[in-house]
Design a protein around this nucleic acid. Structure first.
Lengths: 134, 134
DNA sequence: AAGTATAAACTACATATGTAATAAAACTAG
DNA sequence: CTAGTTTTATTACATATGTAGTTTATACTT
C-alpha cells in the first residue's frame, strides 16, 4: 500500500524552475539561473527566490556541494509525473467535472490536431482498452 | 474575422460561481448564493465578493431587476466553452508543452477509465479523423 | 590570517485569492 | 415618513505569487 504522498502545489513560475531540475539534476542555483537565462527574462534574484520557495514547499531538496561548500545542489523531491498528474486531475475536476473525455472532445473541437496526432491518441486508447479486456 | 476576444482568467472559487450562472442565467446574487449553499460551505458574503470580482473582471455582466431595483440580475459575459478552452490550453502549455496526447497518455496510465469512456473517446477521435479525411 | 566575494537567508512590496465584515443606499412595512 | 431590512459597494486581512533588494554568514583567495 503506497501512502497517498501529497504533492505540493506550485505556481507557474515555480513550475519553470522545476522543469529545469527535472530535466537534469542536481544543479546549483547558478546552474539553474544559467539554464533559465535564455528561456526567461527573470532576474537571478527572482530565480533564487523561487528555488527557496520550492525548498520550503518540499518540492526541492538539496545537498552541499563538495567543491564549494557554500553552494547547494538542488534536486526534485517530487517527480514530474506525479505533479503533472495532480495538476491535471485538479484542472479536470475544476473545469470538466473530472471527465477526461469531455475535455478531449471540447479541446478537439477547436484545436486542430494532425492526423498523426489523432492516430497516436487512438493507439494509446487501443492499448489501454486491451489492458482492460485482459 | 473574429477578434481574438481575450478571456479573463479567474480563480478556482470564481469558477464555481461562473458555473452556476452558466447553467442558468440571469440570476440575482441571492439565487446564486442559494444554488451554492448546498455545494459549498461559503459564507454568502464570500459569494457576493466573488460575484463582484467577476463583474470587475468582466466575466459577468448585470442588469437591474425590474421588481426590486436594488437587485442586479447577473449573466455570464464569456461562455463556458471559451473559458474552458483558454484554461485547458494554458495548462497544457505549462505542463505538457502544449501536447494534448502527452497529457492523455500520462493521465490514462494511472487513472482508470471505464471501457465505455474509452470507447467514447475513440468515437470522438474517429469523428475528428473523418472530418480531416474529408 | 584577514579581507572579500558570494551564496543563502531574510525582507519588501504589489497584485491575486480566499474569506469575510462593515458601510452606504434603496426598498418596504408600519 | 421613518425605521428596519436587504442589496450592493467598500474595506479588511491573511496567504500566495511575481519580482526583486538587503543582510549575513562563511568558504574562497591573497
Amino acid at each position: 500500500m503506497e501512502k497517498p504522498k501529497k504533492v505540493p502545489t506550485i505556481s507557474n513560475a515555480e513550475w519553470e524552475v522545476m522543469k529545469v531540475l527535472w530535466s537534469e539534476s542536481p544543479k546549483t542555483a547558478n546552474q539553474v539561473v544559467d539554464t533559465l537565462k535564455d528561456k526567461t527574462s527573470w532576474n537571478p534574484r527572482t530565480i533564487r527566490t523561487l528555488i527557496g520557495r520550492l525548498v520550503r514547499k518540499k518540492a526541492l531538496g538539496f545537498t552541499q556541494d563538495q567543491k564549494d561548500k557554500r553552494k547547494y545542489l538542488y534536486h526534485p523531491l517530487v517527480s514530474e509525473r506525479e505533479m503533472a498528474k495532480a495538476e491535471t486531475k485538479s484542472m479536470l475536476k475544476r473545469i470538466y467535472g473530472g471527465a477526461l473525455n469531455v475535455m478531449v472532445a471540447n479541446f478537439l473541437e477547436e484545436e486542430r490536431l494532425s492526423k498523426e496526432e489523432i492516430d497516436e491518441l487512438r493507439l494509446i486508447l487501443d492499448k489501454k482498452k486491451n489492458e482492460l479486456d485482459g
